[in-house]
C-alpha cells in the first residue's frame, strides 16, 4: 500500500500564486486576485461554472500565458519543463504516432532517444494498464484508453506537478468512475501533486483533498474546502455518508458561486 501523504497543513510548499490577475483584451477580467498555495502531494480541484477562470489559472501555472499582475512562484526556483505534466480535456495525441511514441514525446523534445527512455515509457504504460497497446495507433483505442495514454504521457517524466483540465468530461460515467479510481492509485504510486479542473462536485470530492470553489464574471476564488477523508479512497467511499456530506457542503459552496455570478 502506498504511503499516506502527510496532512494538508504540514506539507512542503511547491508553488505560490499571489494576487494573480489576468485581464484579456483590456476589459475582460478572466481571473481576479487569485491566491493559492500549492503544497507537495496536494490534490487540488478547481471547481466552478464556465467562465470562472479555472482553465485560465491552469494556463497561467503552465506558463502558456502570463499574469497581468501578481506572481506565480515555484518554491526552489523557476521550474524546468520536466517539472510539469499536462492533460487536456481532449486526449490530444498525435494520430500519426503509436501509443509508445506519443508517450515518448516529452523525452523526445528533450533530445532523448527512444532506446534511452524505453523503460520509463513502458513503465508509464504499465501504470495506466496499456502496455499491450504500445504499438497501437490512437484511432484504434477507445476514448478512455486514449485518455490513459494522455495521462501516461503527462507522468512519464515524473513531474512534480500535473495539471489536468477537465480530462474526463467527455467520457461516459462508467469510464469516468474507473479513471477516477485509477488516477488516485497512480497519484499515490508516483507521489506527484495534481491540480484538477472540473465542474463536477462529485468528481472533485472523490479525488481531492482540497477544493477551490470559483465564481465567474469576473473569475475568482470564493471558497476553499478541505476534504479530510483519508486516502486510499475506493468505491465504498463513493457510497459513504461522509462522502455525501462533503458533496453537500461543496455543492452549497458552488451554489453560492453560481448565485453570486447571476
Amino acid at each position: 500500500m502506498a504511503p499516506t501523504p502527510p496532512p494538508v497543513g504540514s506539507r512542503p510548499r511547491l508553488l505560490d500564486m499571489t494576487h494573480v490577475e489576468k485581464v484579456f483584451g483590456g476589459d475582460v477580467v478572466a481571473l481576479r486576485d487569485m491566491n493559492l498555495a500549492v503544497n507537495e502531494g496536494d490534490f487540488i480541484s478547481l471547481l466552478g461554472p464556465s467562465g470562472c477562470g479555472k482553465s485560465t489559472a491552469l494556463r497561467l501555472i503552465s506558463d502558456l500565458i502570463h499574469p497581468t499582475s501578481g506572481s506565480i512562484r515555484w518554491v526552489g526556483g523557476q521550474h524546468g519543463s520536466d517539472d510539469l505534466g499536462v492533460v487536456f480535456q481532449e486526449p490530444t495525441l498525435m494520430p500519426w504516432a503509436t501509443v509508445a511514441q506519443n508517450v515518448w514525446l516529452p523525452f523526445r523534445l528533450k533530445g532523448k532517444t527512444y532506446a534511452s527512455v524505453k523503460d520509463e515509457i513502458l513503465e508509464a504504460l504499465k501504470l495506466v494498464g496499456l502496455e499491450k497497446f504500445q504499438n497501437a495507433y490512437p484511432r484504434e483505442l477507445s476514448g478512455g484508453m486514449k485518455m490513459r495514454v494522455s495521462i501516461a504521457r503527462a507522468m512519464v517524466t515524473k513531474p512534480r506537478l500535473i495539471l489536468m483540465d477537465e480530462p474526463f468530461a467527455a467520457l461516459d460515467e462508467i469510464t469516468r468512475f474507473k479513471l477516477n479510481n485509477d488516477l488516485l492509485e497512480l497519484k499515490a504510486k508516483i507521489g506527484c501533486t495534481v491540480i484538477f479542473v472540473t465542474h463536477s462536485v462529485f468528481e472533485s470530492v472523490f479525488l481531492s483533498d482540497r477544493i477551490v470553489v470559483m465564481a465567474a464574471r469576473p473569475g475568482r476564488v470564493i471558497r476553499e474546502l478541505t476534504v479530510d477523508a483519508p486516502y486510499p479512497r475506493h468505491e465504498d467511499f463513493r457510497t459513504s455518508a461522509e462522502y455525501a456530506a462533503f458533496c453537500r457542503e461543496t455543492s452549497d459552496a458552488l451554489h453560492i458561486a453560481i448565485g453570486e455570478a447571476a
Binding site: L64, F88, M94
Partner: peptide, 9 residues
Amino acid sequence: NLSDLFTIY
C-alpha cells in the same frame, strides 16, 4: 492543444 504541449515542453 498539441501546440501548447510543445510549448510547455
